[in-house]
Amino acid sequence: MAKATKTNKTGASKLHSTKNPISENIRGSMVELLQTHLATSIDITYQTKQAHWNVKGMNFIAVHELFDDLHEVVEDYVDKIAERLTALGGQAHGTVQASAGNTILEPYPLDLVKSEDHLRRLADSYSAWSKAAQEGIEEASEAGDALTEDLLTEVARGLDKSIYFLESHFQS
């Protein structure tokens, strides 16, 4: 049976014991990397829902449904990131409170209404996470963790598609 994680003085969690062949040092750094992406994925999930619930305008239904579709896509990333993190022996910090303290995203404005404002703001958030995911791909590659690299590549590919869907509404 795996040992429970314990938190050290800095708040970082020790790893659960596992037969995963990656060294404990690399697993620890990948868990830290993935905690940031887990927090960011949870944050962007609810930024997208915030837009979905509050969007108004002439193209309401199309944008409302787009935001719901994007929400489902990023919600899938939440699960995949958390499962990879725990497979490496980490303890997923997946609460809203934990995510708020570890996301890379700027807070989402709560007063947005116009569809174009939501589209632009979400494009900024998706772009910021895409940049971080691409940096994470490089970090995982340098660490020799091909599976985390592959996961973040999948995430980055999906984020780029989402950015395209968002930006297409205001590009000409």
Rank of each mutant, 00 (worst) to 15 (best):
Y108L: 05
T153V: 13
H52A: 10
D150H: 02
G144C: 06
T86G: 02
Q50K: 03
D117R: 03
I137R: 02
H64C: 07
T86C: 07
L147M: 09
P109M: 13
V113G: 00
P109L: 09
E116V: 15
S99V: 02
P107M: 09
Q91R: 05
I61Y: 15
G94H: 09
L105K: 02
E65S: 08
T148M: 02
A100Y: 03
A51E: 07
L152M: 11
G90M: 04
R121L: 10
K56M: 08
N54W: 12
S125R: 02
V155H: 02
L66K: 08
L38P: 11
L122D: 01
T95H: 03
I137L: 01
D79N: 10
S141K: 05
A62E: 14
L152I: 03
L70M: 08
E154Q: 13
N54V: 07
T148H: 08
H64Y: 06
A39P: 09
N59C: 09
A51D: 00
I44F: 10
A87G: 05
N102I: 00
I81H: 06
R121T: 14
I42D: 06
T153R: 01
E72Y: 04
Q91G: 07
V55K: 01
G144L: 06
E72F: 04
E149W: 01
S127E: 07
S99G: 13
E139D: 11
T153H: 08
S141C: 05
D117I: 09
D111G: 04
L119K: 00
L159Y: 07
D145S: 09
V55C: 03
G90H: 06
D117Y: 06
D124T: 04
G158I: 11
A100N: 08
A128L: 03
M58T: 13
K131L: 15
A100P: 00
A146Y: 14
K56V: 12
G89M: 06
